[in-house]
């Protein structure tokens, strides 16, 4: 009997590991930014290129950075979620118009609605690299100290907003209070 127990145990351990492996999403790369200061940027505003907004200007408030582009299909799907989130008035959302032509970006917002406090132009994608962006859309939550608290790769959904982002924002606000 013992002869069969050992191979059986090895087999079960193997199956458990393989089952865990199947559940893991290889596309999910843990962000090295969580809990670390957000990378700096200083970028022109899409609708008014003379005006610039930098990360230093945004210190002292909790804000979200939503990376979007007119060429990004899932951004379109996500857009209604962003609008719904902004309507809740929990925190301002800044857009990072990633590797886009300014006219295309403006046209996209005109057609779909503009929930952003402001959208910043990252035409060649340098700021995107600085923020470790690899799949648009991406969303970051940055606290009052300028620390990245959350990163969403891929489109936001209503359940992510309700179950992750809103509770996190409440938590951040109680910390500061």
């Amino acid at each position: 009997m013992k002869r069969y127990l050992i191979p059986l145990a090895v087999f079960i351990v193997l199956v458990v590991f393989l089952a865990i492996g199947l559940k893991l999403d290889p596309k999910h790369i843990p962000s090295p930014f969580i809990g670390k200061p957000a990378p700096q940027f200083d970028l022109p505003v899409l609708h008014n290129p003379q005006q610039r907004i930098s990360t230093a200007d945004l210190k002292g408030q909790v804000w979200l950075l939503n990376v979007w582009a007119s060429w990004c299909v899932s951004c379109r799907a996500e857009h209604d979620v962003v609008k719904r989130f902004v309507a809740m008035g929990e925190a301002p959302v800044y857009g990072l118009n990633y590797k886009d032509k300014p006219e295309d970006g403006k046209g996209w917002l005109a057609a779909l609605g503009n929930p952003y406090k402001a959208s910043l132009m990252d035409i060649n994608g340098d700021v995107g690299i600085d923020w470790g962006v690899y799949g648009v859309p991406e969303t970051f939550v940055i606290d009052k100290e300028g620390i990245v608290r959350y990163k969403q790769v891929g489109p936001l959904t209503d359940s992510i907003v309700d179950e992750k982002i809103i509770p996190l924002l409440r938590e951040i606000n109680t910390e500061a209070g």
């Binding site: 962000s31 090295p32 690299i129 600085d130 923020w131 470790g132 690899y134």
Partner: peptide, 8 residues
């Protein structure tokens, strides 16, 4: 690169 994209 690893500071931005992680060890991956």
């Amino acid at each position: 690169m690893s500071q931005r994209y992680g060890d991956f």
